[in-house]
Design a protein around this nucleic acid. Structure first.
Lengths: 185, 185
DNA sequence: GGTTGCATGTAAATGGTTACATGATTGT
DNA sequence: ACAATCATGTAACCATTTACATGCAACC
């Protein structure tokens, strides 16, 4: 999904500014499965207007810079619907944590413990965010939106539960190996 | 994690060629949380040799192109261990599937059904791969490797279970809405 | 005869992140 | 005072993906 499609998606819910799109992908519901930065959003919005897929209305605000609010056009809706028909690329998961864990034996045990705690904390934060009232999927959402919300939550919870239930045993193993029991290997 | 660190990681297990590194990240255990292509591996390996982090031995093969087998040096091990100390960047998940589902109401019900089936199939395939003997985490692995193997499997299974248990209800909802019940909205 | 696997590599194109630039207001 | 929020935008940098280039062997 390129930045243009991501912006068109944000515009489906109503008129928004570039700044608001950023928030949606940074803190909002979309942040769990996509990200973007200003550097990609602003140029994408300009191209959208150039291509007639969106229109821009400048709103003067006092004591703030002008706000550029974008609206999707009929052509934009059509292009977006076509983009959704395309075969989705497979999910991609990138994890420094998992990579690092493969080489856990090269790490001090205290560092390993820290890593596991941080990861558990990260899962917990995501779960809390998805369960909190700030999550749009909990009030105005369509069945499909509630569905993916539930899917994400199920995966996060499974990972968090697994981590919490198994980390102590792992840490004990690691401590035993570093603690002079090298002959056993 | 840049391509150089990814290659150093692969070299931890013993001498390998660029081609073999690609396989590790494409079909092997690493493929679940990282990916790379020839275009990034070959230049990365050359830089590794330039910087003295790896050495290359050319192996003549008959009826095949020469094989360039790389070995990590002491300096390489040191640089890699240092790279592991750095704070891992947070996990990143990218999903066209989730994005598309947010706009499920723009899709024909048959297409929605297809999408859900494909996703279920994809989860199933990953689970099967991780449970099969081809998965290195099941024989020669360290406790930490078995740990992340279990973590991944737990998350995949939770997602797959959720999807299978909820997709029919979602499909019925979607069918009802497309099937003339638009007044209800 | 076509595809897949083995095996290496380059170059162009793509596209995103990061950092910079600006500036007022509000909260700590 | 300092940081954060609101608000937009550019440009350099970085890296990866994609496509191209080559070639034989084995399998279907």
């Amino acid at each position: 999904m390129d930045a243009r499609t991501l912006c068109l998606g944000a515009l489906q819910f109503g008129d928004v500014s570039g700044y608001e799109i950023k928030k949606l992908y940074e803190e909002g519901d979309f942040s769990h499965f996509y990200e973007t930065s200003f550097g990609s959003i602003y140029p994408a919005l300009n191209r959208l207007v150039e291509d007639g897929l969106a229109v821009c209305t400048e709103q003067a605000q006092d004591k703030r810079p002008d706000k550029k609010v974008y609206s999707i056009t009929a052509k934009g809706r059509q292009v977006f619907a076509e983009a959704l028909q395309a075969a989705p690329t497979p999910d991609r998961f990138r994890s420094d944590f998992c990579f690092t864990m493969v080489f856990a034996h090269l790490l001090p045990v205290t560092r390993l413990a820290q890593l596991l705690d941080q990861q558990a904390g990260w899962y917990g934060e995501n779960i809390r965010r998805m369960e909190s009232g700030a999550c749009a999927a909990l009030h105005d959402a369509s069945p499909a939106q509630r569905f993916i919300h539930g899917l994400g939550l199920a995966a996060y919870r499974a990972a968090a539960d697994y981590l919490i239930q198994n980390k102590d045993a792992l840490l004990e193993d690691a401590a035993a190996e570093h603690g002079g029991a090298h002959r056993a290997a």
